[in-house]
Design a protein around this nucleic acid. Structure first.
Lengths: 203, 203, 203, 203
DNA sequence: AATGAATGAGGTTTCATTCAT
DNA sequence: GATGAATGAAACCTCATTCAT
């Protein structure tokens, strides 16, 4: 029986860490090997190329993210509840799986935009929640993809600012604020008829 | 801008185009020279390095963006109006200066995150508008950076989806929708079923 | 040959097949192991190195070839008969032991030219036949090595063209033709415009 | 104006020399660069890959060989004369362009067999001469490709033995001998006792 | 004996940058 | 100013060989 140690996980962990810090292209195979404490050749016993390693990590992370979010969603079918839990799960993931989170956000926005086909599944999940809410009547009718993109945009930016410590507010305040913000985006409500908005602007 | 040298502009235009398509790292100086119709050496007559070229383009683009937005802002001081005009200017820029827009968004999110220090000035401008609105009382009180980040997140995601043609709706509808969304985020007002959200906020 | 180990023969067979297809250098130990259905380590239990494996196969093949040819040679001592049988044996080997044949020809011409010292014994055998014929007076006097090289050159080229199917003629015709050709090369006789060639031959 | 020195020829000369000594695969780009006195990068300014360099040298050499042979052929149309001159040209090339000769023979037989499509034009030229002789009636009728292959087999083997100095005879003797041998192969004439060969064919 | 993960030297290729012209 | 051949460090990757199991 051959060695079972398998340094594959060492490679994956090192690569995840470096990819997220410096980006995929800027990370060299030598970097990864050094950080993982293995030889460069070892990388290629487990992955056909650096790109394949990146894709592997991306998919694994996406699945992890997806499952993590799923575990937060309530069984019940209330879309507003689901959205809240989605947001909480999102924040929780960004804290518990710090490295995975920042890797996947960076990778999605940039280097893997084209190569990986499985559309960031967490977004798909969000779309489903929104569509559900629209059917239930609790969310207003608008393009579902756009809606989910907007919500994700808000979440990603918020977490980014939380992480970089530029925010003076505490975590749970931001969480509540973000929930409200996202609901504002999605919920019905006669907002914004110019007169109204002016009125409200005065509030 | 006085044309110091015709070649320099050729280089800048070629680099802008390539950087945004493939990213900065993935673009080689040979690529740039070929596209610009100049020799590789010429690049180095005008810029000390590829990174400096990228930084130059970034700053120039940011300034262009900033001035463009400024020209859309109303002289008047109503924050809601200003926000609306900011959004319209943002959309207009993304259409008129397609290449500059996609370059700056990509660069900001990724490769230049650290190297360029001038905080993407359009965000600063947005922050100022929001702070202004908060002072005026038309926007609710919240962390200004967070607020501006959220609004930018929405704008960037929306434009991205507009560009990739995944939206079935037309431009002016999306524009209106986005305006409303951003106002929902920023304005005061008892939106979203307060009872619920309060309850859960206690959880 | 007693089978020392079943695996060893699997390795040899796989290597023979691959070496002849792609050459020795271009064949990797991983290729061999995969084709043989064994692990890479197993190769090294039986052979000290890839080169030694190649040398082993070369020598084994040469011996096989030599014995095969020997079994075709008549007991009688007529050089012309011996040559005919040599040629027939050569053709027969190239058909019955297709892989061995193409391996040994390729290896001899190229990669093993220097490393293997045992002069391709089939050539030695041919030399002996020719010398015999010269002593008998049935073959003309000429450098024996050169003569054998020429005959081998003819045989190898002919078989090559037979194998690649570029010849419109059938096997037994080619065989007869080749016999005649080799005899023309070796035999005495006022061939070809006697006046001219004889004169020049005397020069 | 840039440097015009062009180290391309240095690279080509070094590669030709090394390829023929050690084979293409066994020659490293580092070898080539060192021998040529240039950096490895320089190779890639002029050739897309090592294989392309090899193909370039092969084609160039083939053309050189072809032109060299052409310059030896008589204007007159006598096939026997043409063949004699072809052979003399062949020998002359192998001596004057020693490196080119041994490269092309080795490359043709082995590493470039498949990759280069232009059938070793010197063989085509020989085929044409043989066909011409057959039409004239001075050469017997036989498969032209086979005939040319046989003659080339003889020439290559003879030159090989001349070069390796294993032959005790002098150059012009070998040349004459080879001419006769080739003419024996090609010319008409009832050689070899037919009865015998038929009988033995039944064996 | 057999395995195959691991090694690491070394191979091919890329590319930002320099510099003679 | 402009050129592009040249550089050489460093990137990615291969592969014969070793060795713990």
């Amino acid at each position: 029986m051959p060695r079972v140690s398998s340094k594959k996980e060492l490679v994956v962990a090192a690569a995840l860490s470096l990819f997220r810090q410096k980006g995929i292209r800027a990370t060299t195979t030598k970097d990864i090997a050094r950080r993982a404490g293995v030889s460069e050749g070892t990388i290629y016993r487990h992955f056909a190329s650096k790109d394949e390693l990146a894709a592997y990590i991306f998919e694994r992370t996406e699945t992890l993210f997806f499952r993590f979010l799923s575990s937060w969603l309530p069984a019940s079918g209330d879309a507003t509840d689901m959205l809240r839990q989605y947001i909480r799960g999102f924040f929780a993931f960004s804290r518990k799986h710090h490295k995975h989170y920042s890797f996947i956000v960076a990778a999605y926005q940039t280097e893997l935009r084209k190569s990986v086909q499985s559309r960031m599944k967490p977004q798909t999940m969000l779309e489903r929640i929104i569509r559900h809410g629209q059917v239930q009547g609790s969310f207003r009718l608008m393009d579902t993809r756009l809606a989910s993109a907007m919500v994700l945009g808000v979440l990603i930016q918020t977490v980014f600012h939380l992480k970089t410590g530029q925010l003076a507010v505490n975590f749970s305040d931001v969480l509540l604020e973000t929930e409200q913000t996202c609901l504002r985006i999605l919920q019905n409500g006669a907002r914004h008829h110019p007169e109204q908005s002016n009125e409200e602007a005065d509030t």
